[in-house]
Design a binder for these strands. Structure first.
Lengths: 196, 196
DNA sequence: TTTCAAAACTAATAAGTGTTAGTTTTGCCA
DNA sequence: TGGCAAAACTAACACTTATTAGTTTTGAAA
């Protein structure tokens, strides 16, 4: 059949990855088969293996790319010379934007990391825990500086991350509400709940 | 082999269902096989079909039981003669307790409803949307009564539900923090973010 | 002890899984 | 136009899946 035609700025593997993200998101990793993916690419399943290593490798690429982006942003924010609440606000806003702009990728990373084979599964969890720990430290700093109420910092981080993650379920209402409105509302509710 | 021995207050189907909850939670619905479930029951796979209709039916039972419990509680709260913020607090507390006490069931319902076959898939989503809509109406009432800040009520509901749902990820920290502490912290952060 | 339904068993089916081997086609560069 | 690697193809493998059919075992009531 027709070959996988290469776009300007993306290799064939990247094109497969893009389809994989969509497929894993809509069907879930387990129920998404290489034959489904091949069909989306207009090709037979074994042909995919000229470009990729395995199905698992696709999931790894998706999950670790997202993880790296979150960690990278936190590095930048931590280095800022600003108040804690400003930093927390930046983190919240980054999460919200990532959720709204790279919806499918974030969704797959959030839901399907469980299917990562070892040692990637452990590695991913480890990165996640480390990220959370750094946020906890940030909140603790805010409490010590009396910018934040004396709340349990673990609970605060959980609440922040979970609330933002919930934007997953919100895509269906996209029409009735702008991204800016969502961002403003969530920042207000989440940050006001923390600040003294 | 040995028969499935019936406990005092539970039919054999209920016993299978209990094992299914655990299995679906740990392996995910797709990767949980009837052979796994049979092994957990100490029986061969086909024997299960003397007690249940299908694998899908197990998932349906789990998801709709949970949905009914949430709807039932909201019915009760709505009927109360109390302030809106009291009602919202009751809803938040119910969600948190459900999450902490029926962790596995709630987890499965939250994660695996996607695998429900039609028409159950549509029905479940419909019930979910209806539930959210009723919460939105509650928040709107609070804003109209000037108990709450003039926040976007959809965003507020999303934030509440998502934050509570995030308790999923918190079980690993169970040791370091009591249920009461979690409940207090979350109620404070979430409700204070709303109240005028 | 006989009876009989409930519930276990074995065997089998048809479909789907990721992936490899080996072969043919494609399409660019000389 | 001839050569050659990239990338498609077909065929196949070794599993696993949910489920059905048909048969045997179990264990309580008569």
């Amino acid at each position: 059949m027709a070959r996988i035609t290469v776009g300007k700025n993306s290799s064939k593997k990247e094109m497969i990855l893009r389809q994989a993200v969509i497929l894993f998101k809509t069907r879930g990793f387990s129920k998404a088969s290489m034959r489904h993916l091949a069909e989306a690419m207009g090709v037979e399943a074994p042909s995919l293996y000229n470009h990729i290593g395995s199905k698992d490798e696709l999931l790894q690429d998706i999950c670790f790319k997202i993880a790296a982006e979150y960690t990278g942003q936190l590095n930048e924010v931590e280095a800022l010379d600003e108040t804690v609440s400003y930093k927390v606000e930046q983190v919240i806003r980054f999460h919200i934007r990532k959720m709204l702009h790279s919806y499918d990728e974030v969704f797959v990373a959030n839901h399907e990391w469980r299917h990562l084979p070892e040692p990637y599964h452990t590695d991913f969890l480890q990165q996640r825990r480390c990220y959370e720990q750094r946020l906890v430290a940030l909140i603790e700093l805010g409490i010590a500086a009396q910018q934040f109420k004396p709340i349990n910092p673990y609970v605060a981080v959980l609440t922040l991350l979970s609330a933002v993650r919930g934007l997953e379920f919100w895509n269906r209402h996209k029409k009735n509400i702008t991204a800016a409105e969502i961002e403003a509302g969530m920042v207000q509710q989440l940050l006001n709940g923390l600040i003294q």
